[in-house]
Design a protein around this nucleic acid. Structure first.
Lengths: 190, 190, 190, 190
DNA sequence: CATGAATGAGTGTTCATTCAT
DNA sequence: GATGAATGAACACTCATTCAT
C-alpha cells in the first residue's frame, strides 16, 4: 500500500525540521560562516544532495530557521490578537519573552547573533517588517490610551529598551541580573 | 634617492586609513564573512598584496577598525578620568555619545553592524572587556553613591538601555525620535 | 538510485592512484615546492577541488606516494620476516632491490628525487625510521654473526653504499655499469 | 677623493659575499622554500631593491651559492692539478673531503639538500658536469694504472660510495661512525 | 527518493620583482 | 647607490551546488 500524499508531506516536514534543528545546532556551536552544507548533512545523516531536495539553497534554509524563531518570539504579544494591548497583556508579554529566551539561551544567543549579520538581516527584513507593523500599531495605542504624552517616543524607547536588555541577557546570561531588570521594566509601565 | 622616513610614514598612514574606511564600508554592506580581501583591495584601488603590507591579516585589519571606533565612543565617559562620575558628567556622556553617533551616522551604523557579528565580537571582546572594566566600576560607584538600591542592576540596565537606544537610532536615524528619547534618558537619571 | 558502495570504492581507488601517479611525475620533474595542486589537477584532468575529496592535504598526498614506494623497496629484505638474515637472503636482497629499481627506472628516479627533498624528508622521516629500525637490527646481527669486527660500522657503511649506488644507478641508468657494480657488492659480502 | 674602480668592485664583492652568507644561513635554518628575498634582505640589513643590484634574480643568487660550495668540495681532488692522481693524493682527497664536511656540517647538510632538489639541480648541472669531467678522467687513470680490472666500474662504484657515505654522514653526523667508515675506505684502496 | 563524485569560483595569504623617488 | 611601496600571479584549500547513477 503506497503512502498517502499527506503521509509523504508529513515525512517531508519532519525531515525539514530535523535539518533545521541540526543546522541551528552547528551554527550555534561554530558560527554561521563555519557551517557548511556538508557538515549539516553529515550530522543529519543524510546526503548533501538530499539537502537540496528539502531546501532549494543554503539561504532558504537560513530563512526558514530565522522565521521560525521570530514567530516564537512574537507569539506572546497581544496573545488574543484583538489588536488591543491590555495592561496585563503587556506584563505578560515581558515575562513570557524572557521565559522564552531563558528556555533556550544557546538558541537565542545564536538567533540574535545570526539575525544581526547584515546578510541574514537583508534576507528576512521584509518578512520582519511586514509582521512587526501591526504590533507597533498596537503598542502605540497602548501608550496613547494610557495617557503617555508622546506615544511615539514611548514605543521606540520601549522597543529599544527591550532589544537592548534581551541582547545583553542573551550575551551574558550568567552575569545578567535578569530578575532585577525585569522588575524595573514592570515598574516603569505602572 | 629614497624618500625620507617621514614621507614613507605619511604614505603608510594614509593608505592604512583608506583601507580601513573602505573595509568598514563593505563589511557594513555585506557582512564580515562576505567581505573578501579581494573586494576591499578592488574598491580601494590597490592590489591584494598591498593590503598585507599594511595589515598582517584580515583579523588585524578588523581589530584596527573596531578599536578605533570603540575608543572614540568611550572618550566621553568620565572625561577627566578621575574614576568618579558626577551628575554633570553623566548627562554630558549621554549627550556627547549621541552627538558622536549623529556626527557620522553612516559610520556608526556600519560600526554597530560589524561589532555585532560573532566573528568580529570574538576578535575584540578581550580588548573591549579590558577597556570597559574601569568604566563599569565607575558607573557602579555613580549609582551606589546616588542612593540606588541595586547599583549592579542599574549599571546593567543602563548599559543595555543605551545599547538598545544607540542601536535603534543608528539603524533608523530618520525615524527615530532622538530628542524625545534623550529627554527620557536624562529624566530617568534625576 | 545511487551507486553501490563497491562502485564508489572502486571509483575512489582508481582516482587516488591516478592522482598519485600524476603527482609523482610532476614532483620528479619540477620538485616538490614547484608542484602545485593546480598543476596536478590539470594534468590529471580533474578539478582542484576533487583532489581534496581524496587527499585531505598536499602533505597527505605526499605521504601516500612515498609510503607506497618505500614499502615496495623494503619488501625484499629478510623476506621470511624471521628477523634473521642468511647469506642467501642478503644476496637475494641486493639482486631484488636492483631488479625492482630496474623494473621501473623512471618511477624510481622520481621516487629518489622526491625522497631527497627536505620538505618531503621531514614528512615521512618518522614513518621511515619506525619501519627501518627492525631492518637495521637484523642487518647488525648479520654482520655480527659473520665475524665482522665492527658490525655497527658495517651496517652504516653498507647502507650508505647501497644508497649511493642506487642513487647513481637511477640517475644515470644508461651509463651505469650495474652488473659490474653488483658483482663487486656480492664479492664484498663473501 | 672618489673611490677607484677597484675599490668599488671590492665593496661590491664583499656585499655579495655577505648576502650569500646570510642567504645560506637562512636556507639552512628554514629550508629553501621558506627563504624569501625579503628575509634575506632584512637579515643582511639592506633593502629588497638593493638585492637586485647585486644579483639579477633569486636563481642567480642560488647558483652563486651552490657553485661556491661545489668548488670548495672539489678543491682537494688532484690538488696539484697535474691530471694525475697519486696514491697519496687519493687518501688525502678522502680525508680532506670529510674534514671539509665536518668543518661545517650544517652548511653541507643544507648544501646537499639544496643540491638534490630538482629545480636547483637543473640550474647548476651544466656547471657541475663541465667541472667534473676532467676529475672523472683522472680517477679513471688512477684505477687503470693501479691494475684494477674494470676501471670504469671502479670509478662509478667509488663515486657512488663517496656520495652515499657523504650523504649519510651529513644527514646524521652524530650517529655516523665516521672514523670507522673512513678507515674502511682507505683500506679498500690499498 | 538518495547518493557522493565532481565542479569552479572563491578564500586568505605569500613573494619575486619593479620602479618612482 | 638605495629605498620600500606596489604589483600580480601564484599558492593551498573550501564549499555551495549539480548530476549521473
Amino acid at each position: 500500500m503506497p503512502r498517502t500524499e499527506e503521509q509523504y508531506e508529513q515525512i517531508r516536514e519532519e525531515r525539514k525540521q530535523q535539518i533545521r534543528d541540526v543546522a541551528l545546532e552547528i551554527i550555534a556551536e561554530e558560527g554561521f560562516a563555519n557551517t557548511s552544507i556538508a557538515k549539516i548533512a553529515k550530522r543529519a545523516n543524510i546526503s548533501k544532495g538530499l539537502m537540496y531536495n528539502y531546501f532549494t539553497s543554503k539561504e532558504e534554509l537560513m530563512m526558514s530557521i530565522m522565521v521560525e524563531g521570530f514567530n516564537k518570539l512574537t507569539e506572546a504579544f497581544d496573545p488574543d490578537r484583538d489588536g488591543v494591548l491590555t495592561h496585563d497583556e503587556m506584563h505578560f508579554f515581558i515575562d513570557t519573552t524572557f521565559d522564552v529566551l531563558k528556555s533556550n539561551i544557546r538558541f537565542w544567543r545564536m538567533y540574535f547573533m545570526v539575525l544581526l549579520q547584515p546578510d541574514v538581516t537583508k534576507l528576512i527584513e521584509p518578512y520582519i517588517m511586514k509582521t512587526l507593523e501591526p504590533f507597533l500599531q498596537t503598542a502605540y495605542q497602548y501608550f496613547a490610551s494610557n495617557g503617555y504624552e508622546n506615544p511615539d517616543v514611548e514605543v521606540r524607547f520601549f522597543a529599544a529598551l527591550l532589544d537592548g536588555v534581551g541582547l545583553h541577557f542573551v550575551m551574558d546570561a550568567e552575569g545578567f541580573p535578569l530578575e532585577g531588570v525585569k522588575e524595573k521594566l514592570h515598574r516603569m509601565l505602572d
